[in-house]
Design a protein around this nucleic acid. Structure first.
Length: 662
DNA sequence: GAGACCGACGTTTTT
DNA sequence: CGTCGGTCTC
């Protein structure tokens, strides 16, 4: 056999001049976009207003970098979702060729996982660590909370969700506990010492059982980069060109990662401070404001020409955001002068709002607007329930984004917990979960079993029966162990493992839920997803980092031409656009939510959220609000339109009420 | 020690 | 309105 070796080449990679590029950048980009695309070295900050071709700019820049002769592998594209990265690289491939497939891309979290899977041992973790999603993290915290006796009899102690939020806030914003408490939870300030103790217990628990929550992925990556300088340098030179999308929604720890990896200074951050809507996740739009300070010599490019919306829509959105207290100055404009003014429509009640949307959607379809070009947006998942019922009655197909997730449903989590135990036998959280499903097993028995496992006295295998027999009588536990043992082998493909687990789980499901056949359909879907994987670890990682609601929708899209109406939370609508957009519940107390009145910062974020919602529209924008909504939380009746529309002249926003004809 | 029952509470957005 | 957490009973 011939052996091929590499010989040092004397050929120099010369960067060709603009004339010889295949892509005609100057014709296809506007001057500001072109400026951003042509910068190869040094830090760049692109402030890209809504609809100004941000994705286009990033896509062309990737193509450009490759065309100038850079290795695709040396480019790292960090985006908000993996889907976004995929989409950009796909578009870049259409411009250029499939070299773009070799570009490294993904979310901060998925990037962190890929590094940690290789180097976890340096942090005293095993590489097979389990990723805890938010619910899992809360389960662990709750376990420690009860076990540690914190849930004191008289004092009020924060709940698991609050505790998780507190710990997360400390991690993502690099802030000490006392500051977090003073700022966001003053009523718990006196519990500082207990909360701190619980936090330490949580940390130790995760370490002991080889678990990482979402924040750990980022924090541990930073720890790794800081404690292993040669690794940091290696990665930094591997990824000579870093691009970060949606920079306004990064948090302090992510900014730190960018700084550590981007020591070469070739970092392009792209974002829009006016669209920062993730502060609850520790994002701080100050990050983007401070980018030039973190990277001296930053060139700032501002994109202001909007290619999405008509001028009347921009006039309104410019008005909405003009009242924000702090931002990079920009004024969006477009050459699309013509178009109807945005409408604000008062409806008697929530159901009239739904009926109007249904009717108008049907009319639009008559007028030739495909359903795939129409969306209904709202502040929170539950706000579309009534509309969903009416759409069902009228046979309008729709897909909802945001809200309750496939992965968060109890039955899917149950199946996943079984798989996790196979991958990481020390994953006590999952053991606990699957043991509790068995009849006659409660918290006590479950703990006895998991203790045996963690002490190393019990594991899957032929000796399990003997050991179990010594301290439990429950036959079901033994069955569980035998079932898991039978599919433990790595040679068995993930879908086959899942199928066996499903057989075991089916009777439990039937017993537990009245609506079991609906849930069974979800589990069939789960099997389909598992079909795509050869390795259990990658299946589990993807499930944690990229909830499949999106991938499933993707699958359907390919087949069915996407003929459905989109319902979405504003958060999930980020980066998307439609011909006609309805924003429902633009009602003061709902949008902004009543709870946000507490602080100016939250109120500002609500404003940006409405801005994001309205800037999704290309042609038609309808804002709706019911004039009678009882609000349980405050015990009041909400009836006024969102305060963000106060003082906006009728020139920008036409008002309507509904007239019902029998 | 498991599971049913009851009362209180708070209520968003997502990797 | 539903979930969560705590208590009571079997």
């Amino acid at each position: 056999m011939k052996k091929i070796t590499l010989k040092k080449s004397t050929l120099e990679l010369v960067r060709t001049g603009p004339g010889s590029f295949r892509i005609d950048y100057e014709r296809e980009l506007n001057p500001a976009q072109l400026e951003a695309v042509e910068i190869v070295d040094g830090p760049v900050l692109v402030i890209a207003g809504a609809g100004t071709g941000k994705t286009r700019t990033l896509t062309y820049r990737v193509a450009r970098l490759i065309e100038t002769g850079l290795r695709p592998e040396s480019i790292l594209l960090l985006t908000f979702t993996r889907k976004a990265a995929r989409e950009m690289l796909r578009r870049a491939a259409m411009l250029l060729d499939d070299r773009t497939e070799r570009v490294a891309g993904g979310t901060f979290h998925s990037f962190a996982v890929s590094i940690l899977r290789r180097h976890a041992d340096r942090l005293k973790y095993e590489r097979s660590f389990t990723i805890l999603d938010q619910g899992d993290a809360e389960d662990v915290i709750n376990l420690l909370r009860t076990r540690g006796g914190f849930a004191g009899r008289k004092r009020r102690f924060p709940r698991k969700g609050t505790l998780r939020a507190i710990f997360s806030s400390m991690m993502t914003t690099l802030t000490p506990l006392d500051v977090v408490l003073a700022r966001d939870y003053p009523h718990f300030a006196e519990l500082h010492d207990d909360i701190a103790a619980l936090g330490r217990a949580y940390l130790g628990y995760k370490m002991k059982y080889n678990l990482m929550d979402y924040d750990d992925l980022l924090v541990n990556l930073v720890r790794l980069l800081e404690s292993e300088p040669e690794l940091r340098e290696k990665l930094s030179s591997d990824y000579r060109y870093i691009m970060v999308d949606e920079y306004q929604d990064t948090n302090a720890i992510q900014a730190r990662i960018v700084q550590l990896l981007g020591s070469h200074g070739n970092v392009m951050a792209v974002g829009d401070d006016s669209q920062s809507i993730y502060s609850f996740r520790g994002a701080n739009f100050r990050n983007i404001m401070d980018f030039p300070k973190a990277f001296p010599g930053t060139r700032v490019v501002t994109l202001e020409e909007n290619y999405r919306s008509t001028q009347p829509i921009l006039d309104l959105t410019n008005e909405i955001i003009a009242r924000a207290s702090e931002k990079y100055q920009k004024q969006l404009f477009t050459s699309k002068q013509e178009g109807p003014a945005p409408a604000i429509i008062a409806t008697e009640n929530e159901n009239m709002q739904s009926l109007f949307v249904v009717q108008r959607v049907l009319e639009l379809r008559e007028e030739g607007v495909p359903l795939s070009e129409i969306a209904v947006l709202f502040r929170a998942g539950y706000l579309s329930f009534d509309l969903e019922i009416e759409l069902g009655k009228a046979n309008v197909p729709f897909v909802k984004f945001g809200g309750i997730k496939f992965m968060e449903t109890a039955h899917v989590k149950d199946i996943v917990a079984h798989l996790r135990v196979l991958e990481n036998p020390r994953d006590v959280v999952s053991w606990h979960r699957i043991l509790l499903l068995l009849e006659g097993v409660g918290p006590r028995t479950a703990q006895r079993v998991t203790d045996e496992i963690t002490e190393g006295r019990l594991s899957l295998g032929p000796r399990a029966a003997e050991r179990l027999g010594q301290f439990v009588r429950n036959k079901k536990i033994l069955d569980l162990f035998e079932m898991l043992d039978s599919i433990r082998s790595e040679g068995i493909a993930p879908p086959d493992k899942a199928a066996v687990i499903l057989e075991h789980y089916r009777p439990i499901l039937k017993d537990k839920y009245d609506d079991f056949h609906k849930r069974l359909k979800d589990l069939d879907m789960f099997l389909e997803i598992a079909e795509r994987y050869r390795s259990l670890q990658s299946l589990l990682t993807d499930l944690a980092l990229e909830p499949p609601s999106e991938s499933v929708a993707d699958l359907e899209e390919e087949g069915k031409e996407r003929e459905f109406l989109t319902l979405s939370t504003v958060h999930s609508a980020k980066g998307l656009e439609w011909h006609s957009v309805f924003v429902i519940h633009v009602l003061d107390g709902r949008f902004p939510m009543a709870a946000s009145v507490r602080s100016d910062a939250e109120m500002e974020e609500e404003r940006r959220l409405l801005y994001v919602a309205c800037t999704r529209a290309k042609q038609n924008l309808y804002l709706l609000y019911p004039t009678y909504m009882y609000d349980r939380s405050t015990g009041t009746v909400l009836s006024k339109p969102s305060r963000f529309l106060d003082g906006i002249s009728g020139n920008f926003l036409e008002s309507f009420t509904l007239e019902v004809e029998e």
